[in-house]
């Protein structure tokens, strides 16, 4: 063993978690699954409590729920979808809370792992958003949605040779991929940063000649933890508003 050298753990030790039960099965339940389930349950509990109170002046949990509904309405649906967007509120609000709680576990002690730093959660939600916005487009505009997206009006005919493949790739292939990768990579990067500075702190603690540098590393760790709170919120928000923008683009394709 090398004493005092900085030894970064292998990536699978940082992001992979052993199953709690059902090892090797499709229903294997590990920490990521637990966090996902917990995110769903916490959200449900918040809204169940908020819905059962019904006070004229909201306080506590009811306040959280109502503020978040207002937030999704005013900051996500209004700029993203525009009119007719109210009916997508349940999905968007579920998405926002699910992602936020899955993200925020990255800085909560004893979890220390954002569920979205694994590709599963982002890809599921991104594919859902993809299916959803294509479905909205087909439902409201029929096949003209696809043709309108692939052959944008006002473009000279020969340019369709160039425009159509680009539109196809950017609208129907890149969107879910970039949506998932954005969230996943942000959270994984944050997680790896936190792990790096934690490992650095531990190494400095055990390595007496450089123990004076420990406060710097610890300060960085704390600052990054605060930054990760912001990132957790921001990434949930961006994922939700991008979904809303895609749905809005499918609902009002003339814009």
């Amino acid at each position: 063993m090398i004493i005092g050298a900085l030894q970064f753990p292998p990536i699978e030790n940082v992001v992979e978690w052993p199953a709690w039960f059902g090892q090797g099965q499709a229903y294997a339940f590990n920490k990521i699954a637990f966090i996902n389930l917990l995110a769903a349950i916490i959200t449900i509990v918040i809204f169940a409590i908020a819905g059962s109170k019904k006070q004229l002046v909201p306080r506590g949990v009811q306040n959280i729920a109502e503020v978040s509904v207002q937030f999704i309405r005013n900051e996500v649906i209004a700029p993203g979808i525009g009119h007719g967007g109210e009916r997508y509120l349940p999905m968007l609000i579920s998405m926002f809370f699910f992602l936020f709680f899955s993200n925020i576990t990255g800085i909560i002690p004893l979890f220390n792992m954002p569920a979205t730093a694994r590709m599963a959660t982002p890809i599921v939600l991104a594919l859902l958003a993809w299916v959803w916005f294509i479905g909205v487009g087909l439902k409201h505009h029929g096949i003209r949605y696809i043709t309108g997206a692939l052959f944008p009006p006002g473009v000279p005919k020969p340019l369709y040779l160039l425009v159509t493949p680009i539109e196809f790739v950017s609208t129907f292939l890149v969107r879910p991929f970039s949506l998932a990768v954005r969230l996943f990579a942000n959270m994984l990067a944050g997680h790896i940063l936190l792990v790096t500075f934690s490992v650095l702190c531990i190494t400095l603690w055990g390595f007496k000649p450089l123990v004076a540098a420990l406060p710097l590393s610890l300060f960085m760790l704390i600052a990054l933890t605060g930054f990760e709170v912001l990132v957790a919120f921001l990434q949930a928000y961006i994922f939700t508003i991008l979904t809303a923008v895609y749905i809005g683009g499918a609902l009002h394709p003339e814009h």
């Binding site: 700029p79 970039s178 954005r182 990579a185 942000n186 994984l188 961006i238 508003i241 991008l242 923008v245």
Partner: peptide
Amino acid sequence: GMVRTTMFLGIAFTEALALIGFV
């Protein structure tokens, strides 16, 4: 408010390139 929302969207699109680099 509107500018901020649009700014976050623009950042999200631009940042995607860096994140692909990270991947």
